[in-house]
Structure formats: structure tokens, C-alpha cells
Amino acid sequence: MNKSLREIADILLKAHSVILAGHVMPDGDSVGSTAALGLMLEHLGKRVTLVSNDPIPSTYTFLPGSDKFVIGRVPAGEYDLFVVLDCSVPERTGESLRVLLDKPGPAVLNLDHHASTPLYGDYNYIDPKASAVGEIVFDLGELLGVPLSLDIATCLYTAISTDTGSFRYDNTTAGTHRRVARLIECGLSPSEVSTLIYDEKPLSSLRLLHAVLGTLKVSPCGTVAWMRMTRRMEREAGATDDEAEGLINYARVIEGVEIALFFRETGPDRYKVGFRSKRAVDVSKLAQLFGGGGHPRASGCSVEGPYEEVEQRLVDAAVAAAREGLHGRYSKYPKTPGDDLT
């Protein structure tokens, strides 16, 4: 069952040794919220261990506490509680951390904001209204009685800013801005943090962008755009996996496009697919058709098969979803099968 946040705070207060992790291929919310909660629990005198299946992206290594993450393994020790943050399914913790979900093992506390997240923890707090897990951790800090330090504020601002697209996405609420105002009052500089996140990129990331843009395709109806990234592109650009973050948005910003897809090769005939929508389509439902999940405007899944077949299946589904979503929102689009949408 879903606990109240007060109950979650009490569970954390009773724990002595806590291990925390976000999801594979961590993003700003995953790293920022995990690091922030770790700093809060350290303030309370808890023994805290931060772990990640994958390396922390270079974009987020400026975050306080990011250097404390143990990568790709679970350190030996006894843990009272395993806190999983921002993981829509338990498998997203990654292979190297799966042992922490097996029983016997520490109790599992699942903190998330994806509407599709199952209650897989011993304790669960899922709030789909939160723009980011960073908002949940912010509220937890108040219940835990931990004062906002500049380090905690930096982590939380990063979590919230990245998951709201710099406060441009429709998951941004008045409550989001009220929380951020509190972070700024702690001495946080939004311009400095935003520069580090969005305006400092290695040259290899631009080389990767150049290669990926060469694969850009747009459906005949103009409502769906997609790109592909292969492992060869990464190698030739000298890039790392984390440098692909945000590339999907170059397809999303095209005028008339409602849904963007990004196919990332992870192995022979294996792909991670990202979905983004602009206004009318809940892409979490689209991702669920292929075993994935996420948010209404940002979601993903993993698929297997020859690329041409995978591309065809997912693009066809995206075009159908765009047709249905846009018909409900904009009367200028045709409403009967056979019109010029595909």
C-alpha cells in the first residue's frame, strides 16, 4: 500500500544503516534526489551508502555527494533499508543492485513520481503529482527536520529543474516554484547551476549530435520525428552514454511534431527507446505498449529485434497515438481513417 509521507519519514528516522540508489543511466532527478536524501540522512547521523549501477554522468559530477556513489556493485555490509528513488520498475535499479531486492535482504522503500510505478517495495510512496522525486525529497526533508543547506539545495534544484525541462514542461506547478523559491533563499544561484547543466558540454557530445542528426526522419504526416544512435557513433565521436541525454529534444522541437522518438542501440538487436511529446499525447501509455513506462510527456522502453522492424513497429504506434491525441485537441486535424495523417 502507499504510505503517507509522514510514515515514510518515520521509517527513515528509525533506520540506522541506509543504502540508496536511483535508476540505470541516471539523469538529473535520479542523481540529485538520491544525493540530496543521502545528505539529509547523514545530517541525522545515519550510516549512508550511495550506489549506482552505471557511472554518474559528467554533467552531474559537480553535485555535492556525487563523488560518494559506489558504481556497479553493492559494498559489503548490513543495511536496514534500501531506498530506491525514481525507478518506475524494480529492474531499473540495474543488474548489479538486484541482490538488494532479493529476500532475505534489507527492507525496500520505493520513492517515485511515475503514475505507472507498481508498489514493489515493502514501503511505497508514489506521488504522480510531483514534478520530480526531488520535490518529494524536499518535502521529506521538512518532515525529517533537516535544515536546507546550500549543498542539499543544489542537488534538489538540479533534480527539479531537469525533470521539468527548466520549468517548461506541464508538470511544473505553483508548488514547484514555491519549493524552488525556498532553495534560492538558501543562497542557490539558478544561473550558475543551469550553466553547469545546460551550457557546458564536451566537444565529443557535439560530434555525437552531428552523427545523430544525420539519422533524423519525420513521418509523412509531420507529427512524429525520430533519430537513431548506434554504438559505432558513440565510439567514433569519443562520447559516453550520458552524452546522449537530451538529444531527443532536437526531434521534439520541430514545428508540427507532437511525438519524438530516440532509438539508442545497447547491443546486437537491442534498443532503448525514448519518447517525448509536446502537448496532446500521453507517451507513458505508448511506452507501456512495449513494456516500458514513464511520464505523460517523457517515457521509454527497451525492445529487441532487427532495427528496421523495431523502427516500423514503434513509429507506426507513435503515428497512431499522435493522430488520436491531436484529434482530441485540435479540430484542424482530420478525424476519419484514411485522411492525410500517415
Results as ranks from 00 to 15, higher is better:
121 G>T: 04
288 Q>Y: 02
142 E>W: 11
123 Y>K: 07
314 L>E: 01
283 V>D: 01
98 R>K: 10
159 A>M: 11
6 R>G: 12
218 V>E: 14
259 I>F: 02
37 L>T: 01
103 K>G: 04
233 M>S: 08
240 T>K: 15
106 P>S: 10
182 R>F: 03
294 G>W: 09
206 L>Y: 15
338 G>M: 03
137 V>L: 09
239 A>Q: 04
316 D>S: 14
310 V>T: 07
175 G>I: 01
238 G>H: 05
88 S>P: 09
27 D>L: 02
329 R>T: 11
171 N>Y: 05
280 A>I: 07
220 P>S: 09
216 L>C: 11
189 S>W: 10
213 L>S: 11
159 A>Y: 09
71 I>R: 09
108 V>L: 13
199 D>H: 12
268 P>T: 10
181 A>K: 06
293 G>S: 11
211 A>V: 06
41 L>E: 02
172 T>M: 11
207 R>S: 10
145 G>D: 12
48 V>L: 02
11 I>R: 13
327 H>P: 00
147 P>Y: 04
77 G>M: 10
196 L>R: 15
241 D>Q: 11
215 T>V: 14
317 A>K: 04
44 L>I: 07
199 D>E: 14
295 H>S: 05
307 Y>I: 13
98 R>L: 10
295 H>Y: 03
92 R>G: 00
202 P>K: 06
314 L>W: 06
18 V>L: 03
80 D>K: 09
330 Y>K: 06
81 L>A: 14
132 A>V: 02
247 L>Y: 13
86 D>M: 05
301 C>D: 05
68 K>S: 15
341 L>A: 03
72 G>Q: 12
156 L>C: 04
192 E>M: 03
248 I>V: 15
202 P>R: 06
93 T>K: 06
294 G>E: 05
49 T>W: 04
304 E>V: 05
131 S>L: 10
146 V>D: 00
286 L>T: 01
145 G>P: 00
81 L>N: 12
240 T>D: 14
321 A>H: 08
291 G>E: 08
147 P>F: 02
134 G>W: 00
255 E>A: 14
177 H>N: 09
162 T>A: 07
237 A>K: 07
314 L>Y: 03
161 S>H: 09
87 C>R: 05
33 S>T: 07
304 E>H: 06
162 T>F: 10
252 R>Y: 02
78 E>A: 15
339 D>G: 15
260 A>L: 06
172 T>K: 10
340 D>H: 14
149 S>M: 12
113 H>T: 08
130 A>R: 04
333 Y>N: 08
158 T>A: 14
181 A>V: 04
268 P>V: 08
269 D>L: 11
69 F>T: 04
29 D>M: 06
108 V>I: 15
44 L>R: 12
99 V>P: 08
16 H>P: 00
123 Y>N: 08
189 S>H: 11
30 S>T: 15
107 A>V: 03
114 H>Q: 07
88 S>D: 12
